[in-house]
Design a protein around this nucleic acid. Structure first.
Lengths: 128, 128
DNA sequence: CTTGACCTTCCAGTGACTGGAACCCCTATC
DNA sequence: GATAGGGGTTCCAGTCACTGGAAGGTCAAG
């Protein structure tokens, strides 16, 4: 299979697939003309990576997760720890964003949003 | 005032303050020795920028907000629109993160996290 | 006069792609 | 056989908002 077919199958853009090869996450074979040839195993790996990325794991986490996936002697504890750390990270980000959200919602509600210059949002930013 | 004092006062690292000058957000004066000399107005601007950044506004948004702040003839509607767009962005991010959070929480709960290889997290990623 | 803490500029790296240029390959059609 | 198009390839630069580090100038204290 060529790269654009794989892109359709996995939902990953060709550029991203090439990038993943670049950084050593996959190693597709090559045809005599230099084109990448993807086997089922490559597609499986890319799907795995895509799913891990949509769950927000970093590329380095993905690398680790793939290694664990391929290691028959892994400990599920290692996977769980990674996932828990990532989850903690996400919890933190959500909290930060929610704090921004609350402040912004409040300010937006206060602001008339008309053609006059008076603006509670700017007043807040300037901390009057 | 020198840069490290300003850093303490505003909570922004010296590197960031220099960067903000680089991209034209501030224009501090210079001493004869080449050192930056910060006036109250500069510090005020930096505080404004710092606050806007903690609310998650992009640098370009900050530039626009500062311009609006300094424009006596502004319309608060322009400020409000910017804030609303940004808020929508944040809402979206939160929703994404919460979806990841829900999935990860579930998977982490399912995973034994012991020394055996069986792992629901990896099973999910591989979409068995 | 030296030490150490400032300050300066400039360059490179971060993460995870993404856009674009320049070029090769393959098939179909005129 | 020429050409058009739709693939593929590599490589370089840019994104965003800093951050680290090197190399060097400046200043106050002892």
């Amino acid at each position: 299979m060529n790269i654009s077919d794989v892109a359709k199958r996995t939902g990953l853009p060709p550029k991203t697939i090439r990038y993943y090869e670049d950084i050593g996450l996959i190693r597709p074979a090559r045809d005599t003309n230099g084109y990448r040839v993807f086997q089922d195993a490559d597609i499986h790996k890319l799907a795995f990576l895509g799913r891990a990325r949509t769950l927000g794991f970093s590329i380095e986490d993905c690398r680790t997760l793939m290694a664990l996936y391929e290691d028959q002697d892994r400990n599920s504890g290692d996977v769980k720890r990674l996932a828990q750390e990532h989850l903690a990270h996400i919890d933190e980000k959500i909290a930060q964003l929610q704090s921004m959200q609350a402040t912004l919602r409040h300010l937006v509600r206060e602001c008339a949003g008309d053609n006059r210059p008076d603006c509670p949002i700017l007043r807040d930013l300037a901390q009057d």
